[in-house]
Structures are given as structure tokens and as C-alpha cells.
Amino acid sequence: MKTYLKTFLFSIALVSFIACHANNKKTNTDYTQAEISNNKPSKQYIKVALLLDTSNSMDGLIDQAKAQLWDIVNELSYAKCGNNKPNLQIALYEYGNDRLNGDEGYIRQVLSFSEDLDEISKELFSLTTNGGEEYCGQVIQTSLNQLKWGKNPDDLKLIFIAGNEPFTQGKINYKDASTNAKEKNVTINTIFCGDYRQGISTFWKDGASLTNGEYMAINQNNATVHIASPFDDDILILNQKLNKTYVIYGQAGRQKIALQAEQDANAGMYSKANAVSRTVSKSSHLYKNKSWDLVDAESDKDFKYDDLKESQLPEVLKGKSESEIKAFVAKKRNERESIQKQIQKLNNKRKLYILEHKKENANGLENAMTKAIKEQAKKKKYSWD
């Protein structure tokens, strides 16, 4: 299963270097008015829709998705397209579970495109399995219809669908769904949970090939291998300090900081190493909380202190002047940036340690793909920090 999710990461990379050099020609109808005025494209995004089979046989798949989320985020946080670091949005669907509405193809949108990594983690942990019918074409088409994929040619738009039943089931033909995906510049990548040849014979490979995506076959019941490092304890101590730099505001503040703590605990359920991976994610530019944290909110160009009501402030800031609030937030920002730099520095040492202590033949497919993708990426000037 680790191979599945790591392959997922590097399949993203394989397609993403193409996005860096996409044809930038647009018609006027493709631009927003702001883009026309500024003569600049909107911010670049990596958009990932993850479609997970939650039928009875997929317990291992769901369990490992929970365990590997933060490694996925961390790998994507190092991606660069030219001088830019793209943002990340993840959407989540479950399908093939007979607790879901049969009239809608046993499909549920768990989460639309979101940058809220804590919310994504929460929803992954909410998934449970049960028997049902698995309609690949229909869940792909549903995600194409419901999600806001956008028209920026520099956005990387990816669907990853995982399951173990024939790709041909259901009333919507996967070939028609693939045609619609190509129209939206969305690449479909397929992960068959079982024998590689069986996945080919049940059309999972064809489902990927139609949009030039990647086909992968994995054993969903393989356990994730976590490698402990001498730097883990120090990183986790820094996580506790990092959490103290959040300055809640608004109605969502208390709920969201509780959610942050809950997802810290969920990550730690798997292993110390997984909790460390989450901490590293929290130190990256992809971990954003502007809806409830004043430090992140202040960086938003639309944020105004004048819009804040006294009732929205935490107790520590009530009765304070605007200049006093700004000084408090600036102090927390400086503390956070310092802590994040320390985490990243320790993580660089941690990555080297893990690389040295991996078994030579572990995750052979992952290592082979990593090497191939990075070599191709160099030619396209796509890079990883």
C-alpha cells in the first residue's frame, strides 16, 4: 500500500512537469476580468481528486491512505514550476459502498476541492467500508461534473481512482468519462488493488491510457513501513511549540484548533514517524488556516483588521488596540517562521537518515519511478527543493 501512495505521488510529478510548460494561449472568455486587467494568470494549483473504493475488501486501502496523507503532502510541498510553488487542493470521493445512495451510483462526495489539510485528514478518518457495487465510469464522471476544475492551463488536474472490480461496471462507460476528462484537461490515473495482469484484463490500464495517465497495481493490504529517526523527538517538541503560535478568531476558531489537535493525535496513532510527517506538513506553505488563524489571515490581501469584531477575538486580545493586536500577531508570526525553519532543517537530516536506512529492495517500483520521473523532469525544468 505504501507503494500505491508513493506511486500516486510520483505519478503526480510525472504529469505535473508537463503543466509547467503548458500552452498559455487563452481566449478572452477563459480569463477572469482581473486576469485581463493584470495580464497575469491566476495562481497555479495542483488539483487532486481521490476516488476510493470503500467496499468490504478495501479496509487496507483506506487505512493506508490515512497513514500516508502527510508523506503525500510533504512530497508535493517541494514541487516547483519555474520559480513558483503551486498550491494544493484535494477532493475526496468514496464509491462502491452499499450504505450510499444506489440511485446515485453508490457514490458520495466526501469533500470538494479543499486546501484545509486538517479537514481532509478528518474526512479520511471518517471513512468506513461495506459491500456494494463499484461503478468506476460513474464516479469519474461525477467528480468531473461536481468539482470546480477551472480553466487555468498551468493548473495540474488529476484524478486518482483506486479499486478492485472491473472498470467496465455501471451505466456510464468509462470511455465516455475519459473523453470528458480530456475536455477539461484532467488526467485519470488508475490504481488496481490486486494482480497487475488482472487489472489490465479488467480495463484499469485502459482507463488510464485514454488520458495518458498512469496505471498501477498494488497489494492494498501491505503494511506501511515507518522508519524512526534520531530527529523525531525534537521535531515533535517543535510541533508543540508551533501549535502555540496559532491565534484563533471568529466562530470557527475554537473548533478548528480542536480539529488541529485531533489530527495531530490521529497521525500519532499510526506511529511516531507518521506524527513527524504531519509536523513537517504543518511547517510547509501548503498548510493554510486563514479562516481561523490571525497569523495566516493577515497575509491575505483582502484581510482588514477593521472588519474584526471584539467578539471574534480570543480572550488574550480583547480590549486591545489595533496596534497592540498587530504587534501580538507579528510576534507569533516571527515565532512560527523560526519554528518552521527549525523543523525543515531537522527534516532535511531526517530524510537523509531514512534514505540511508531503507532496505535496498524495498518499494522497488517506487524507486524506479522516482528516478525516471526526476530525470524527465530535469529536461522540462521541473524541480524539487
Rank of each mutant, 00 (worst) to 15 (best):
L5V: 08
T7I: 14
A13P: 00
V15T: 08
I18A: 02
K25G: 06
K25Y: 09
T29Y: 09
S37C: 07
K43D: 11
K47L: 08
D53M: 08
K66H: 02
A67T: 04
Q68L: 13
D71V: 00
P86H: 01
L88A: 00
N97V: 05
D98A: 15
G102F: 09
L117T: 02
E123K: 11
L127K: 01
T129F: 06
N130F: 14
E133S: 15
G137V: 08
V139W: 04
Q141F: 09
L144K: 00
N145C: 04
K148A: 12
F160D: 02
A162R: 04
Q169W: 12
N173S: 12
Y174E: 05
K175V: 12
N180D: 14
A181I: 03
E183D: 12
K184P: 03
N185E: 14
V186S: 05
G194Y: 11
G194T: 11
I200G: 04
S201G: 06
F203C: 15
G207V: 04
L210C: 06
M216N: 13
N221A: 08
N221W: 11
A223D: 11
D234T: 11
L242F: 08
G250Y: 05
A252G: 02
Q255Y: 06
I257V: 12
I257C: 00
Q260I: 11
A265Y: 02
S277N: 12
S277F: 12
T279N: 07
V280C: 04
S281N: 03
S281T: 15
S291E: 13
D293C: 05
E298K: 10
S299H: 07
D306I: 10
E310F: 01
S311L: 06
Q312R: 00
E315K: 13
L317F: 03
K318G: 04
E324K: 08
A330P: 03
N334Q: 15
E335Y: 09
I339L: 08
N348L: 12
N348H: 12
H357V: 03
E360Q: 15
N361V: 15
N363M: 09
T370N: 13
K371F: 09
K371D: 14
K374T: 12
K381R: 07
Y382K: 01
